[in-house]
């Protein structure tokens, strides 16, 4: 067991990103507003990005940063489509909770 050092190692960043991912999961499970659920999905994507960047530095590999770039692009596209779906659903109803979408089932 090495002496406790105050220099952040890769494990610190990975643990932080695990906690951030857990908070995002909790938000998706608990909140009923689809917009806030989307924000929690963004939290989870950011947690994954953070661990990719931490591992890119640990492993001296630029590909970790490349994939974060692609994750950001796909996240932007996902938010655009998701918000479009929410806007078109909101045309026909006035409240916005995820429970209302049960009306979509056949």
């Amino acid at each position: 067991m090495t002496a406790f050092s105050l220099e952040p190692t890769t494990s610190w960043y990975l643990v932080l990103s695990a906690i951030l991912f857990g908070i995002g999961t909790l938000g998706v499970l608990v909140r009923r507003n689809p917009l806030v659920m989307f924000m929690c999905i963004e939290l989870m994507l950011n947690a994954v990005n953070l661990s990719f960047v931490a591992l890119a530095r640990e492993l001296n590999d630029i590909n970790g940063q490349t994939i974060v770039f692609f994750v950001m692009v796909v996240a932007a596209a996902e938010v655009v489509v998701g918000l479009g779906i929410i806007v078109s659903i909101m045309r026909s109803r006035s409240t916005l909770t995820a429970d209302d979408l049960a009306g979509l089932k056949g």
Partner: peptide
């Protein structure tokens, strides 16, 4: 997260994080 990107030598991604996210 953008600050941590800078701390981890991912400078371009930090800028993209602030601009895009």
């Amino acid at each position: 997260v953008a600050v941590l990107f800078v701390a981890q030598e991912a400078h371009f991604l930090a800028a993209v994080q602030v601009i895009v996210y």
